[in-house]
């Protein structure tokens, strides 16, 4: 089994420089390249690039009952969106969700991984248990949690009744509904994030901790000054995929809240789907899709840049 260590992470540029001297290039490369990269390029062109331009095109028109473009309106769809309080609130909601999910997923993942990295008898059992949500898909997570949030027979309701606390109406109140979605999302992603963090923490050289122990540095200090910096590439990887993944969240919303109440969980991708495939307003939906694209592209770019700079500790 291959083990990775933090030192395995070679900054991209260095690798590229090494690479040049590694292999000799032959004249046939062009032919081979078309075979090797051609299919992927064709598929990405057809199913990623073309639709992007097409979406941009549709967003500049009005669309009729059949979804055909009928009237060129320029940027009207965008102007309408940006000036609509509804859409602006959707953007805020999405942002709150993304920040919430990313923060709690990483915090919980780190906590679990740090706990499970201790050398204790029986720790393997906990490692297995903590990773269990990796096998949970959207629909299953939604069903399990919908039942927990159920206001009459759900687990939370029974629990609060047993403890004589006021019952919380999870899905009827805008703030609670957001929490419900965040909790479910974090829970669903936790297994995966935990495993990745655990692997990273385990690969931190133990000599570092031994040295720290000798100097009498507290465990708390060790975590923030040894573990965290050493696993920073993993941390960035996880934050990238969590941020981008939660911007694109759809399944749980469709299964649990349907965007409500009062649009409190009506996030961007749900809107795109809803406006097109429920509302039949393909033009509006396309404009929203373009806005989503800009956001995702921005964050991906930011993360790439960040990754390049910061990871070379």
């Amino acid at each position: 089994m291959l083990k990775t260590s933090a030192t395995d992470v070679i900054p991209e540029k260095k690798v590229e420089a090494k690479q040049k001297s590694k292999f000799k290039l032959t004249a046939n490369d062009k032919y081979y390249a078309s075979i090797f990269a051609g299919p992927s390029l064709f598929l990405l062109g057809l199913f990623v690039f073309y639709p992007m331009f097409r979406t941009l095109y549709i967003s500049l028109f009005l669309t009729n009952t059949f979804g055909n473009t009928t009237l060129f309106v320029g940027l009207e769809n965008y102007v309408k969106l940006i000036s609509s309080p509804d859409f602006v609130s959707s953007m805020w909601v999405t942002l709150v969700y993304v920040v919430g999910v990313t923060f709690f997923t990483i915090a919980m993942g780190l906590l679990l991984a740090n706990l499970a990295s201790q050398k204790l008898p029986g720790i393997a059992i906990f490692r297995t248990l903590y990773s269990v949500t990796m096998g949970v898909s959207v629909s299953v997570a939604a069903i399990f949690w919908l039942f927990i949030f159920n206001p009459s027979a759900g687990f939370f309701t029974l629990l609060t009744k047993m403890l004589n606390l006021p019952t919380i109406n999870w899905l009827a109140n805008p703030t609670n509904a957001m929490w419900a979605i965040i909790i479910t999302t974090v829970w669903m992603h936790l297994g995966f994030v935990f495993l990745v963090f655990l692997g990273a923490i385990e690969s931190v050289p133990t000599t570092l901790y031994e040295a720290a122990d000798v100097e009498g540095v507290s465990k708390h200090y060790q975590f923030f000054h040894i573990t965290l910096p050493m696993i920073s590439p993993t941390l960035f990887f996880i934050s990238t995929i969590t941020i981008i993944g939660s911007f694109k969240s759809f399944g749980l919303i469709d299964l649990i809240t349907k965007g409500g109440p009062t649009n409190a969980t009506n996030m961007l991708v749900y809107r795109i789907y809803n406006d097109a495939f429920f509302g039949g307003n393909y033009a509006k939906s396309s404009a929203e899709a373009i806005i989503l694209t800009v956001i995702i592209a921005f964050f991906t770019y930011l993360q790439f840049k960040f990754l390049e700079k910061k990871v070379n500790y």
Partner: peptide
């Protein structure tokens, strides 16, 4: 108020 989520109708009937 049973809200408007995916299960609002079911929850209401359950209640």
């Amino acid at each position: 108020n049973y809200g408007s989520g995916a299960m609002a109708g079911t929850n209401q009937t359950t209640g």
